[in-house]
Write a protein that binds this DNA or RNA. Structure first.
Lengths: 249, 249
DNA sequence: CGTCTGGTTGATACGACTCAAATTTGGTGG
DNA sequence: CCACCAAATTTGAGTCGTATCAACCAGACG
């Protein structure tokens, strides 16, 4: 439950102490969602911008016959949809994966922050552009990569994003997703995800057990995943994450 | 070369005559791109917001080994990436499909428009949220739908979007995409796209020849595509498109 | 009229799916 | 602390959708 949002925005820009204070204010948890419950459903009218303070969530779309695609994962420090309130209704749902602490931020609150803090505003811009870039990369991921590459890519992405907000180090992080979640996110079946994870383990690319992921050699996993970190847009003036060039050893 | 942007924004909001004048001003063509040429490449620094005035383009991402995924199509009235200039470099390319007229809009020009015209600003918000929603739907499309549904979905989406900007009527529209383009956009091979189009033709769902698409019964095609138009967010106070409920006959 | 791009066809291969069952894990209450 | 249950993971066998590879054809164009 660290200052995930501040860490996230600092990946991109520098924040003043006042900026940080403002961020701490909007990061006040306003709601706790139990695991596997929806935060908001398709069809509802969006009233707030949600900020993930603690826990994991996902954005998903469902087809009438039950097929389901997770189109994004949210980790602490992620916003969902700056400016949603211009839309009449949600075209997708957002579900908690773990127990989730969210800050529901009203339009007014948001407006007053952006009006007074250009630096934060710009950083929020960046954060939402990065989210779209991730969405595009996911389209590429399910459209072109093999199961093996696809899962590897997903794991690397999550690992790097977690690292940005201080939730991963030394190649390892908590990892609450089930194989079913991975299947829904990758467009594969759970059975095939299972076998693919076994392949990745066999090749010593990952360790994954008890909801904990360890990547012994991030570089190597990135290679097999054809992972090009440019879409995460981390190479800015802010804290320069070593995501772009993972330390060789 | 009609007022595509105005039509597009009016799908969502009402515009005053002044608004329309401003839109006409920013829609001035500043560049013509020949077909199949890149408008901007991965790695370049984005300097302008691009507005598609006439012609089709696509956003694509490529893998080192040549695999390629089209992640979006642009048709007249589409913007690409409001606010891109906060990013250091493009994580994807944008390529012209047909001969293309674009308006390159500078950051300053953009800022001055949004500062003075809240109505337009809100509409631009909407337009970019819709683009993200489309991106999510594409992830669902390639992740979950069969080849048959997938191609059908793509065709319906493009048809409805073209209709919004006055480029389609009576179930038919110009359609400059090659089967190769469709393959890159759907994550299928060109051969399989070919066979799938034949299936759709056999089932009297589409006519497609000489770069012209006709959909005899849009409703029916939407059904086989499990097309849920809510993601296009057309049900707003603006001109109410009949996309949500295509006329029965 | 030849060239080229885009479209079409056929034969074969394989990656991922399906279905079904077994096993392990984690949590809960007695 | 153990017994129990549900959820998650694992395994196996068989199938199918889509990819691959290789020709061939048609229309557009210079």
């Amino acid at each position: 439950m660290g200052p995930a949002l501040a860490l996230r925005l600092e990946a991109f820009t520098r924040l003043s102490p006042e900026d940080r204070a403002v961020i701490a204010t909007i990061s006040q948890v306003s709601r706790i969602i139990p695991p596997r419950r929806d935060l908001i459903r398709e069809g509802e009218k969006p009233r707030f911008v949600h900020l993930m303070v603690d826990g994991w969530a996902c954005r998903y779309k469902a087809l009438p016959d039950g097929r389901r695609q997770i189109v994004a994962f949210f980790i602490p420090g992620d916003f969902c949809d700056l400016n949603v309130y211009v839309l009449k209704e949600m075209d997708h749902g957002i579900g908690a994966i773990t127990r989730l602490s969210v800050a529901d931020i009203s339009r007014e609150e948001m407006d007053s922050v952006t009006a007074a803090h250009p630096r934060i505003t710009q950083a929020l811009w960046w954060e939402s552009l990065v989210q779209v870039a991730i969405q595009r990369e996911w389209t590429l991921n399910v459209g072109q990569r093999s199961a093996y590459e696809r899962i590897a890519h997903l794991l690397v992405e999550l690992y790097l994003r977690l690292k940005t907000v201080g939730l991963a180090r030394d190649g390892s992080c908590d990892f609450p997703l089930t194989q079913n979640d991975l299947a829904d996110a990758s467009g594969l079946t759970a059975v095939h995800v299972n076998r693919t994870l076994q392949d990745l383990r066999r090749d010593d690319l990952i360790l994954l057990e008890h909801k904990r992921l360890t990547i012994p050699d991030v570089r190597r996993l990135m290679e097999v995943a054809t992972f090009n970190p440019s879409y995460l847009h981390l190479g800015h003036e802010g804290r320069n994450l070593d995501a772009r060039l993972e330390p060789a050893a």
